[in-house]
Computed example of a mutant assay.
Amino acid sequence: MPINNKQLQSHPINAEYSIEVPFFDLDPMQIVWHGNYIKYFEEARCQLLRKIDYDYPQMKASGYYWPIIDIRVKYVNPARYGQKLRCIATLKECENRLLIDYRIEDQATGKKLSKGHSIQVAVTADEFEMQLISPIVLSQKLEAYYASL
């Protein structure tokens, strides 16, 4: 039976990405430039996709691309040079789209710095035709992940 959103809610899949804020990620106010939070989301998302063995190369090999169609960020507290951050990506939906939630926090204190989400939909690699439901390969990858636990 294919994995559904309800199962993801009861047994979430998440992954983390850690970074020490480099100088070149700062803006003139000496805090992390707002666009870099998206970069941190992307790194955490790649960790999550690797965890289920469906990273971008595997997506392409399966005949699908998964472009982002919506991304949101809420900035709660600024991140600063040298601060060690943890970005946690959690897969929330898989049936008709990939909905991934993010939380960026201070690694030492757990203080929330930002949160957000991204939405991706499957499109065929050859015609870029959007799929109204997620391709079966995603469910197969999720089933294999849960079976390996």
Rank of each mutant, 00 (worst) to 15 (best):
Y145P: 01
A89M: 04
A61N: 13
L113Y: 07
P12H: 08
A144L: 09
C94S: 15
L113K: 11
I52P: 07
L49I: 06
L26Y: 13
G82E: 11
S114F: 01
D126T: 14
H34I: 02
A61K: 14
G116D: 08
D53W: 01
Y64V: 12
L113F: 04
Q83V: 00
K74Y: 00
V73P: 00
A79E: 06
E42L: 12
G116K: 08
Q9E: 13
K141F: 08
Y145T: 05
L113C: 09
Q140N: 14
K6H: 08
D106V: 05
Q120R: 06
Q120D: 04
G110M: 06
I100H: 01
Q120W: 03
D126C: 10
I68S: 09
A108F: 01
D53H: 12
T109M: 12
I68P: 03
M1R: 14
K51R: 14
Q7W: 02
R80A: 12
V32H: 03
P22V: 05
A147R: 10
Q140G: 14
R50Q: 10
A89D: 04
G35I: 07
S118A: 13
R86K: 13
I71K: 03
T90H: 05
V123R: 12
Y40K: 14
M29R: 01
Y146S: 09
G110D: 10
D106M: 05
D55Q: 07
A15T: 11
L98S: 12
P78K: 05
I88F: 01
I13E: 15
S114C: 15
Q7R: 11
Q47G: 03
C46H: 13
E105M: 05
R45S: 11
Q140T: 05
F41E: 11
I13C: 14
H117N: 13
A144F: 04
A108E: 14
P135R: 08
V123D: 11
P2A: 12
G116W: 04
W33I: 00
W66N: 07
Y37H: 10
Y37K: 02
N36G: 07
L91E: 09
W33N: 04
A122N: 11
P135S: 10
I119F: 03
K60I: 15
P67V: 09
L138K: 10
I88T: 15
I104A: 06
H34V: 09
M59G: 03
A147P: 02
D55M: 06
K6S: 09
G116S: 03
C46N: 13
N36A: 04
Y56W: 14
G116T: 03
P67L: 06
V137K: 06
A108N: 10
S139T: 08
S118Q: 10
P2E: 02
Y75W: 03
D27C: 07
V137Y: 10
V73N: 09
Q7K: 06
D101I: 00
K60V: 15
I71C: 10
Y81V: 14
Y64T: 05
S114R: 02
Y146A: 11
P67H: 14
I71Y: 02
A125L: 12
A122F: 06
D70E: 15
